[in-house]
Design a protein around this nucleic acid. Sequence first.
RNA 1: GGAGAGUUGGCUGAGCGGUCAAAAGCAGCAGACUGUAAAUCUGCCGGGCCACGCCCUACGGAGGUUCGAAUCCUCCACUCUCCA
Length: 380
Amino acid sequence: MNRLTFSLLATDGAARRGEIVTGHGTIQTPVFMPVGTLASVKSLTTDQLQQLGPEIILNNTYHLMLRPGVDLVERLGGVHRFMNWDRAVLSDSGGFQVFSLASIRKVREEGVEFRSHIDGSAHFLSPEASIDIQQRMGVDIAMAFDECPGYGIAHAEVERSMELTHRWARRSLAARSGSPALFGIVQGGIHHDLRKRSAEEIGALDFEGVAIGGASVGEPKEEMLDVMRFTAPLLPADKPRYLMGVGTPEDLLDGVAAGIDMFDCVMPTRNARNGSLFTSYGKVAIKNARYAGDQRPLDPNCSCMTCRTVSRAYLRHLYVTGEIAAMVYNTIHNVWFYLDLMRGIRQSIASNSLQAFRDAFLSRVVSGEVDADDKEPPIE
RNA sequence: GGAGAGUUGGCUGAGCGGUCAAAAGCAGCAGACUGUAAAUCUGCCGGGCCACGCCCUACGGAGGUUCGAAUCCUCCACUCUCCA
């Protein structure tokens, strides 16, 4: 069964320019995947999302199993039909919720007992259960069920957790019977010896792709980058490499340079809802008083709907007054910004100029200036 | 005309002798957010300073009682409620 094909089109140093073919279209890599936990990229309609053009989005097994439940999603024709989305979908296995909802779960060899964060009801997730749900939802790429240890945990315990993840990886593979591609997840915390072992073990299994999990779980940025740079080259070269849950625009540039092909992160969408906007000249807190009378577009270098049609002053007004449109405009911009950044990255790899692209990007961000006239204070 | 209630920091509104530069909420100002329990959370929010402390000005106005007053008393100003 040809569940997924990955082809390498070009390289630039360790960076890879590739293409993933799924049952729901082709994905150009390196790719950023917007997060749509509950079968929705928060604040956007599917039509609005489609216009932004992502080739793949995420959803989440844990959250969808609780609401609306996998039976219903299956009966309604799967997630694609459910949300009227015809591009690819990757589902997280629920492994991350083992970490983020740690206070209401119990991990055993067999699987994890959760208490629903919604109504306290008991639920069980195992490799088999997670894969079953992901298959029935009809996603294109499923993730193995893993355990994601937090930061600051002793080596021995991380090792034990990693070994559990490895056993679960094999069980996940064995449980997969349907059409979705399945990615394994490398764990091992910040420890090189564990990451190496995990990369070798997971890399040797018959997955269609390999992910680095357990990043950005509270560790200092340098640790995260170190783990990523150490682990990425240890992953199979002929499979997509996915760095889970990362990250900032700078992280994406670093990740691509280290040879990562896929990223996902809630940052563009969550930050958008919280009024934190990514621009070519750095982060903008749109609620700041300085934008009250600023008639300029958010980012003059951006061609998203938001930047084409409304001013910073209007965006600030919408945010400050709590208008729903603020979240829509902001999310459209941030998602577009991330997708556009990835477009630029892909082009630069193809033309062997990733380093120059990265330097140019970072220098603009550091200077904080849009253009020459940004040195003047905005209109008050 | 009579009886009563009230006036607190930008707003609403606690406090009713010291532990009060004064609760709380809102507004305001800033920050955070990395496989989403997040349209969330955090900090600041009278002024000044050689700031984990000190000084000044403050609870309608003026005066008084007291070691000490936003808190008690007197007068004044204004607001509101009820009865005529």
